[in-house]
Write a protein that binds this DNA or RNA. Structure first.
Lengths: 157, 157
DNA sequence: TTTACCCTCATACTTTAGGGTGATTTTGTT
DNA sequence: AACAAAATCACCCTAAAGTATGAGGGTAAA
């Protein structure tokens, strides 16, 4: 258990031990450099460099850089010459209003309710109300279900 | 070569510059603390902690770039009669695991986390963990954003 | 052997979503 | 003008999602 703890927290343990050694060295150097007034700068610089080196070493250990910028060519599965047109028949049958469709589209794009409210210049409560109405009409219980169903019905792209 | 060196060791170079600034500050503070003999230990300890902290902070800050996905949209026509095949290239580049893709698919179908957990015979906590990982890799903050992006990238149908 | 990653799980907490109830205002139709 | 539907808004409450932190086991690669 304690050995496991050492395995997992090796860096921290090594840092602790290193710090102890450095502090000991610091104390020891302190006794020597107090004698020489002119050596003050050298001493201060020495501890700065020492601790800086330790900081760098530790930071490199702690933070492995990860590959992060990913450029991906993506294929859109749609013929560009044919713009998406909502399934008007389904919209009529469901009784989905223009505003509700608008809200649904923004939901599908991943916006929060607050975000949608701000985009449409209305209150958060309004969006929640629209949401409930949308779910009712689509007979679903959540936005992800609504989005899934709406795409299948051809209400949104 | 030297430029490459800079690129590779960005943290170290930036830290070096920061160190120069700190050393200047050190010199300036030096003139003040020389007056007080009893402040010596405090001063030394202060610079040690300061330099170590700065090193750690800088390195962590600069070696944790955010996941950034740049999407270049290339519209092509897809024949609906051809069954959907996930974009393996994008999956590899994003580092998306099989399990994560599995969870993402079930999310897109509108399942709750608990529902997904039950479907995959794991704990709710596990699904939450996978969720976080998926969001991280897609650089999104919610499941709806993740789903939207995954569809655009061709990761899911 | 060590390291990195995936998978799994837990806990505590915060944020967001969603249900229920009620109300008012606006808009469109007859 | 009357009426119905749509749009808007509020408040209270619960459920679900999402974050942060930590842990452990297994596997493959260095």
């Amino acid at each position: 258990m304690i050995f496991q703890g050492f395995r997992k927290n090796k860096t921290i343990w090594l840092y602790g031990v290193s710090l102890a050694i450095l502090l000991f060295l610091l104390k020891w150097l302190e006794l020597r450099f107090v004698i020489y007034d002119h050596a003050f700068e050298i001493y201060a610089g020495a501890i700065a460099v020492l601790f800086t080196s330790l900081g760098i070493w530790l930071a490199i250990k702690l933070t492995r850089p990860k590959v992060k910028t990913v450029i991906i060519e993506k294929e859109i599965y749609r013929d560009p010459s044919i713009p998406f047109v909502p399934n008007g028949k389904a919209l009529d049958q469901l009784g989905m209003s223009k505003r509700e469709l608008e809200v649904l589209k923004l939901m599908a794009e991943g916006h929060t309710n607050q975000g949608i409210a701000e985009a449409l210049f209305v209150s958060l409560n309004t969006i929640k109300t629209h949401g409930s109405r949308i779910f009712e009409k689509l007979d679903v219980k959540s936005r992800t279900q609504a989005i899934d169903k709406a795409k299948k019905l051809g209400l949104i792209a």
